[in-house]
Amino acid sequence: MAKVHVSTSVNGEPTEFLCEPHDTLLDVLRNELNMTGTKEGCGSGDCGACSVTVNDRLVCSCLVLGAEAEGKEIGTVEGIGNNDSLHVIQEKFLEHAALQCGICTPGLIVSTKALLEENPSPTEEEARYYLAGNLCRCTGYDKIIRAVMDAAESMRGAA
């Protein structure tokens, strides 16, 4: 079967790629575009390590086909901040020691950003339920939730 030509935007950059019709957006990001910040933990939408946004909607990129990116705006962890200018969510994750192995961290950063854009003042319970799709096996979530709540407060203060 012929490859599909896709024109899309990744983190604001116009991007084109060829993919197999069955390739997931996660496969394309990691193996075609060499953007390995988005992680694969399960391939079945259960762990959230591959969280990205498609037109600002939070999705598991393992459940989206690469071909579906046509004409869309894709947001990944690589677009959120870098070592020189971290996003406040990233700063708070570091400050609160909200990561250990770090494999779930990119997905959690993307999901937290989506949460706080939807709901700038989540309760702890709302944050816990919004992030329930992002599995972390190292931290027990305590420090992640503290980082998220603190980031929310900082972002409200800055707004």
Binding site: T36, G37, K39, N83, L94, P106
Partner: peptide, 11 residues
């Protein structure tokens, strides 16, 4: 930590 929150860390 910096590489892990920005997605640059290689697993």
């Amino acid at each position: 930590g910096y590489d892990k929150v920005t997605g640059r860390a290689n697993y």
